[in-house]
């Protein structure tokens, strides 16, 4: 039933045995022991499970692992530099203390990274649209908006 699958995650190749239909999220969390992508709904409705697929933010909770073998997968763990320097988006979130429980942070940060790559000068409306798929129950969205705007302002020029 299982078969070997090779994934490129955070710059490293991993070959693992998995059910080919298994959604990427389960493989990342259980087989690669990553904590960034979170289970929130399994329905592509909340964004907790976001990862970067070839630089685009996508939910990982439904997409079968075999559909992403040719993609570069980056998770929250893959954003900071090896020396611990945070990605500018992560740093902006930290500076704004943009979370309460933090469960949604993965989806927020991954979405913001993809958004700012596509639209480095994003304004209010573009940011809101880019973050629309991610839910937060703690009401941290106002801080998240400030953090993303800060990241726009701080981007290396």
């Amino acid at each position: 039933m299982t078969k070997p699958v090779t994934l490129n995650v955070n710059g490293k190749k991993h070959t693992l045995e998995t059910d080919p239909d298994a959604p990427l999220l389960y493989v990342l969390r259980n087989q690669l022991a990553l904590n960034g992508p979170k289970y929130g709904c399994g329905l592509q409705q909340c964004g907790a499970c976001m990862v970067l697929l070839d630089g685009k933010a996508e939910p990982s909770c439904m997409i079968p692992v075999t559909a992403v073998t040719n993609k570069l997968i980056v998770t929250l763990e893959g954003l900071a530099k090896a020396d611990g320097t945070l990605h500018p988006v992560q740093q902006a979130f930290l500076d704004e203390q943009a979370a309460q429980c933090g469960y949604c942070l993965n989806g927020m940060v991954i979405s913001a990274v993809a958004l700012l790559k596509a639209a480095p000068n994003a304004g209010e409306q573009t940011i809101r649209q880019g973050m629309q798929r991610v839910l937060c129950r703690c009401g941290s969205q106002a801080r998240v908006l400030r953090a993303v705007k800060r990241a726009v302002k701080n981007k290396p020029r």
């Binding site: 904590n35 979170k38 929250l76 933090g102």
Partner: peptide, 21 residues
């Protein structure tokens, strides 16, 4: 004061019950 747990949250370190293995 800045929450130090923030750095752990923002880098995806083990924090939540869901992360216990």
């Amino acid at each position: 004061v800045k929450r130090e747990d923030f750095r752990q949250m923002i880098t995806g370190q083990s924090m939540y019950i869901q992360d216990l293995r």
